[in-house]
């Protein structure tokens, strides 16, 4: 897989952004909690993501050159935003770790990082939307990226913040549910548009996409099943409706081990999003008369 670096980069950064967004929201509700492990994880993910992005470059040592065209190039802008986000997140993590007393600074920096992060998701999606890859020229990829950031961020936040999440858990689960549903709707629209696109590249992408229907099915099974699991403790009555027979059986065995269920849910959602991202890159076909 040629674009493995980019899968890693976008998934890590988006997950990190998601965590920071929920950290910011949680901070609004509970200024005292430090959400230490969530934020440190976010910083770790952001750094890993940033490093992964270098792996994609043919000449990583010259990466600095990419900062020069922020006025015209989405990609240049993304590097600024990603760097800023990663820098801020790492700073917050550092402060929490080294100097937890600087609470006001921490509390101020988290929402700034979150906002930059959310803007970065837009920039990231714009990068792909700008290209001549028909498979990416669809507004659904914005939804795809935001949904990935929200769902992964939320589920990781639940996992990493444990009891501190408190009342937020239900809200988070709903947020994930909504994000995933929007993601599904976006994908439906995407299939229709790509299928209707007459260009050879689009058709090729569509064929590739269809050839990957197993992977696609797996993506959605994992994501939907994973997010469904999150509803188990809170909305057990509705579980059957939402995730079906199989989930009920799982639920029966995991009822008492709430944290295990959450871990499984997190793993499923993240793996699902990674598979989705893999498909995203795998179906990219440029132009109709490509030289390559």
């Amino acid at each position: 897989m040629k674009e493995i670096a980019l899968v890693l980069f976008t998934i890590c950064i988006q997950a990190s952004i998601g965590i920071m967004v929920f950290a910011a929201v949680a901070k609004l509700l509970n200024k005292e909690s430090s959400f230490k492990s969530a934020i440190i994880t976010a910083a770790g993910l952001a750094i890993v993501g940033l490093l992964a992005s270098f792996m994609h470059l043919g000449r990583p040592l010259s990466a600095i050159n990419a900062l020069s065209q922020f006025g015209s190039s989405w990609l240049s802008l993304e590097i600024w935003f990603t760097s800023a986000f990663t820098g801020l997140t790492a700073l917050v993590a550092l402060l929490i770790y080294v100097k937890p007393s600087t609470k006001s600074a921490i509390n101020a920096l988290i929402p700034i990082a979150a906002v930059i992060g959310l803007a970065n998701v837009f920039v990231m999606a714009s990068i792909y939307n700008f290209t001549s890859v028909p498979a990416w020229q669809h507004s659904s990829i914005f939804m795809e990226f935001y949904a990935a950031a929200i769902s992964m961020g939320a589920v990781l936040f639940i996992v990493l913040s444990g009891k501190k999440v408190g009342n937020m858990r239900r809200t988070l689960a709903f947020t994930i549910g909504v994000a995933v549903i929007l993601q599904v709707v976006a994908m439906e629209l995407y299939y229709i548009q790509l299928g209707a696109n007459e260009s050879l590249a689009a058709q090729t992408s569509f064929t590739l996409l269809n050839n990957m229907s197993t992977a696609m099915a797996l993506k959605w099974l994992l994501i939907l099943f994973g997010s469904g699991l999150l509803f188990l403790p809170t909305m057990k009555a509705k579980t059957n409706v939402l995730v079906g027979q199989a989930a009920t059986e799982v639920a029966a065995t995991t009822e008492e081990t709430l944290s295990t269920t959450t871990y499984i849910a997190a793993a499923l959602i993240i793996i699902g999003q990674i598979i989705g991202r893999y498909i995203f890159y795998a179906i990219s076909i440029t132009g109709t008369i490509g030289l390559s």
Partner: peptide
């Protein structure tokens, strides 16, 4: 969901 996948597959075949 299953329905959606079926639909995608149908489209795939006709396509």
């Amino acid at each position: 969901m299953a329905n959606l996948l079926d639909k995608a597959r149908e489209m795939m075949i006709s396509r």
